[in-house]
């Protein structure tokens, strides 16, 4: 089962229905026991870094997340779910993140319109199964004010230009995470979820709904 981690943030239903659209059931919840049964985990999220970490703590989800990732379970972070994987964020000084990926989260510079809202391109720096069928420099939908700054260059999967070049996707062993919202990025975004489902369930093939004909 695919499990979408609920820690009180919005946006969960849209992630769940994106999986439904590609033909995979995803359960939404905050039960650590269900998490340990899951074959794949998704951490979505909108909102503030500190409040999200506090919600994860309160629901007792921090340790299970760290433990499941260490156990090698495929893990997908989206938007704030990307940022939470890092060690800390300028948004919430003094709050420790999950610390799965080394580095921190910083505010976009004042020289650009913040938040960064709209469609922007992801330049894919290396091969990744989550981008199967997705051309380099494809556009995805972004809504955010902060960006991740990984310490290790090897963790960077995609970058995006917005006044500055920022890291819009990371990949580290069984963990991948994106600053953009695949569930709001039309057909190519759905393909990211489809590819993640394929990573979780080896040999799984989609029903074909993502290929274009919606009728």
């Amino acid at each position: 089962m695919l499990y979408v981690i609920d820690y009180g943030s919005g946006n969960l239903r849209s992630v769940q229905k994106a999986f439904e659209r590609v033909g995979v059931h995803a359960e939404v919840g905050s039960d650590p026991r269900r998490m340990s049964d899951a074959k794949g985990l998704v951490l979505p999220g909108v909102g503030a870094f500190g409040a999200a970490m506090a919600d994860l703590e309160r629901r007792g989800l921090v340790e299970p997340i760290v433990e499941r990732i260490a156990a090698g379970v495929p893990f997908l972070g989206v938007c704030l779910g990307l940022q939470l994987l890092f060690e800390r964020s300028e948004e919430s000084p003094g709050v420790a993140g999950l610390g799965i990926i080394r580095g921190d989260v910083r505010r976009l510079p004042d020289t650009v319109k913040v938040p960064h809202i709209g469609w922007n391109q992801a330049d894919i720096l290396r091969d990744c199964d989550l981008f199967d069928g997705i051309p380099d420099s494809s556009a995805f939908y972004f809504v955010h004010s902060y960006v991740v700054v990984p310490t290790r260059p090897a963790d960077v999967l995609t970058t995006t230009e917005y006044g500055v070049t920022f890291v819009s996707g990371v990949s580290f062993e069984n963990v991948a995470a994106f600053q953009f919202h695949p569930e709001k990025s039309s057909i190519l975004g759905l393909r990211v979820y489809e590819n993640f489902a394929r990573r979780v369930y080896e040999g799984w093939e989609p029903a074909g709904a993502v290929e274009g004909d919606d009728a």
Binding site: H116, G118, W119, N120, Q121, A139, E161, Y162
Partner: peptide
């Protein structure tokens, strides 16, 4: 690059 949008 930030893209311009078309909105029906």
């Amino acid at each position: 690059m930030h893209l311009k949008r078309i909105i029906p």
